[in-house]
Write a protein that binds this DNA or RNA. Structure first.
Lengths: 323, 323
DNA sequence: CTGTTAGCGCATTCAG
DNA sequence: CTGAATGCGCTAACAG
């Protein structure tokens, strides 16, 4: 018991001589407390799970994911919590190790999937009876012990659309990856569509599927679109990958950007700096979202409730040389 | 006990009617086994830690890291193990939650740091008495219960150097990020230097520090080098980020690539596809390394020893349009 | 100020 | 084929 007191910093419960004896023994034995035994006793595991729903095994390839994970992880680690990471396909959510067994005090999720798959996912989450933080989408369900962390994706879409319309883009194409159904990507489209709708006599916005969102797939999709319907005035990428892919395709065909065709992306993470000319984009607050998510979850664990059931973080437009 | 048998799939120890009763109760109660209690009893936690030593809080920004983590994580998750991820600065390794407490059956590490910091790190690792997998560098220490997983970085450096020399590069500059001291990056330089050394009368290779490896830092470093010593015949990036940054700087100055200056990178992860012209690079087997690391660690846990104390995975040159 | 008792949820062992 | 006793490492509660 005295050792337990020492480990937990309750030094006032013992004499200084005892402190020294205990400290020395700990060093000599190279003792590390067994956190799962402590967890068993206190029913607090000091660990949080993060499940990323993605059809690709490379579930960390996206900059958004890595920003959220590192923001969340750093926040938790600084407070003695551990982060357990797992990538899983949309239909296999229920098979996740973090869901099948009880290993964490709470779970964070980046969901994707729609329709029946999505409903199944929600049923699984409901059964967990664990505090949840859901990134990148707002879940209406009020029976869920959850907090949703989102960015102003709709607004970002509106801002870019307005920016393009001001610069004379009449016919615009939006390149949308569909391998994963991420709500945030569609929110961007909806925002842009909303703005284009108020100029519907003269302006149009068309959604073009670019599959897995790779450079090759995006360029193929855009090339097919151009062949079918001619050159648009602007191409919006639903993310920077799609935007840069479009930019490179257009330039390799000798199209002048932005004079003939304007191009935008979305997210403005590190590799946007690789684009030439620099891509106009919208800065998404990924790292900050991870931090906020961690804060909300620990607040829920310590105080019994989330501060809010939904947090929306601001975006801002990053004007580049492609518009 | 019958429930425990059921959970662990020992169905032959009970009648079919009992099976049904138990299964029904499990569903009705929404039961999930408590993995830390099981761990306490079996002294197997079914969880592996991964510590990434990086000076930046964005410890997942590098494609190598994310490939290794996802390869490792997928391998472990498929086998019922969980992956606990933590990013930590070089001097703070000992403070890691995964090191301070006992939470895992084994640890994986991506180390960086040198000199005294590195020695301290090794002392910390030695005290752990846990199986270790170390990525991206070979640790000589035989008293460590460890397996090192590396790629043929030296060979990659040699291949690129040879490729450049064949294409007439006499004076070559290598851009090296130094925020993190990663052995793998220096191995690339050493490989290239070795090849240049056998043409030392006519050819030279110079190392240029590019700080945190960001596009801005790399371009600044290269610009300063050009101002001081004139235009080189070739620029090698120690990774693709540096290579693309160099490529863009040169092109923005009107330098013809590859006619006037050749450019190479290293790793050939996703965003290499963003470069125009396509960067010549070397394909690093990040995802595969993660998988192999997971396999070695589970082999060590199940059979008592690593299959080998060191695994080296092949690289191959990816010829692009910049050489 | 220090030590004793008991129990968290599970699985090994062994008895019925 | 089923269940009772036991202990993994830890800490809340309490006794000395």
């Amino acid at each position: 018991m005295t050792v337990s007191n020492y480990i937990n910093g309750r030094l006032d419960t013992m004499g200084t001589e005892t402190q020294e004896r205990v400290g020395e023994a700990i060093r000599a034995l190279n003792y590390r407390p067994d956190i799962s035994a402590r967890g068993l006793r206190r029913s607090k595991l000091l660990s949080i799970g993060m499940i990323i729903v993605d059809e690709s095994p490379h579930y960390l390839a996206d900059g958004y994911t890595t920003q959220i994970v590192s923001g969340l992880g750093n926040f938790l680690n600084e407070r003695g919590y551990t982060l357990q990471l797992e990538g899983v396909r949309a239909r296999a959510l229920a098979k996740s190790s973090l869901i099948q067994g009880l290993r964490t005090d709470g779970l964070c999720l980046m969901l994707s999937g729609k329709g029946a798959v999505k409903r199944d996912q929600m049923a699984v989450l409901r059964e967990l009876r664990q505090p949840l933080v859901i990134f990148l989408e707002s879940i209406g369900a009020t029976d869920l012990d959850a907090c949703c962390i989102v960015a102003e994706d709709r607004k970002g879409g509106r801002l870019l659309a307005q920016h393009l319309i001001e610069r004379g883009a009449k016919r615009t194409v939006m390149l949308m990856p569909t391998l994963n159904y991420w709500r945030a990507l569609y929110a961007r489209f909806e925002g842009a569509r909303h703005t284009y709708a108020s100029h519907r006599r003269t302006h149009s916005l068309k959604l073009v599927d670019c599959g897995d969102g790779s450079v090759a797939a995006a360029q193929e999709a855009l090339a097919a679109e151009i062949d079918r319907c001619g050159m648009p005035d602007a191409v919006m990428g639903a993310n920077d990958q799609a935007g840069i892919a479009a930019l490179n395709l257009l330039r390799s065909r000798g199209v002048k950007v932005p004079d003939q065709v304007r191009v935008t992306g979305f997210n403005a993470f590190e590799f946007r700096d690789f684009s030439r000319p620099l891509l106009t984009s919208v800065k998404s607050p990924g790292y900050e979202m991870g931090k906020i998510g961690g804060w909300e979850l620990l607040t829920r664990l310590n105080e019994g409730k989330f501060s809010q059931s939904r947090r929306k973080l601001p975006v801002r437009i990053m004007s580049g040389e492609t518009t």
